[in-house]
Design a protein around this nucleic acid. Structure first.
Lengths: 122, 122
DNA sequence: CAGAATCCGGTTCGATACTG
DNA sequence: CAGTATCGAACCGGATTCTG
């Protein structure tokens, strides 16, 4: 869990690449960020390319409310807050992996169908 | 495929019960409707409780565009159109089943966490 | 029967600026 | 560092009405 997150870890995952979605737009990626252990706010923010603090906070709060992760603030200056997956949150990795495997196998086919679509319409 | 669809087949699947989503709001349910064979527009519409023709058309067109199903109109009066899953569309059943299994196992836990949330905030 | 056309409201998401 | 506050745009999804 000490390893820093690769800022480009989601380079190959544009929104279009997710016909299988977990929760809202960011939930699945946040779970991936926490897969290898607890992380701080800015650590999670980095790979999520351009997510605003507001939206990240909203997503994290919703996930905390649903019991997917825990939020533990430390009374320090400067402040430090750590987010960590619960067992429930970790259990989502299973359907997530099924979705990822589907994308790896079939997404190219879907994208191809989508692109050749305009060829056959008035 | 001759069996009519149960109009209540999605009674236990409110939107809140789908932290794992396939495509848009209706895609997964439409796939379920077509799982056992080709269906007509109104056949699909019935179990989808209150979906408007506009939204159903949009969903079906998007799925056709993505190669998930085929649309075959018959030149009759009154008109008849049949929708049928492609192999690609059928392949989505695998991640869908993974998502359904997760819900069966863990959704109650998530809902419980969500409800007991307000007990611990100022 | 299987839709098309039009209008509309809510939620989601983001940009920007500010703070303990 | 880890947020909050405000504003606004975009994107579904839905209601209603009409038609070949």
């Amino acid at each position: 869990m000490a390893e820093p997150l690769d800022p480009d870890m989601f380079a190959g995952c544009p929104p279009v690449a997710a016909p299988v979605r977990i929760g809202d737009k960011w939930t699945a990626k946040i779970i991936r960020c926490l897969e290898s252990g607890a992380r701080r706010f800015t650590e999670i923010q980095a790979p999520l390319r351009g997510i605003t603090p507001k939206v990240l906070t909203e997503s994290l709060r919703a996930m905390e409310r649903d019991g997917l992760l825990t939020r533990t603030p430390y009374e320090e200056i400067p402040p430090r807050v750590e987010y960590e997956l619960t067992d429930l949150g970790r259990s989502l990795l299973e359907p997530m992996n099924a979705g990822c495997e589907w994308s790896r196998k079939h997404l190219a086919e879907l994208m191809h169908a989508r692109e050749t679509w305009h060829a056959a319409t008035p």
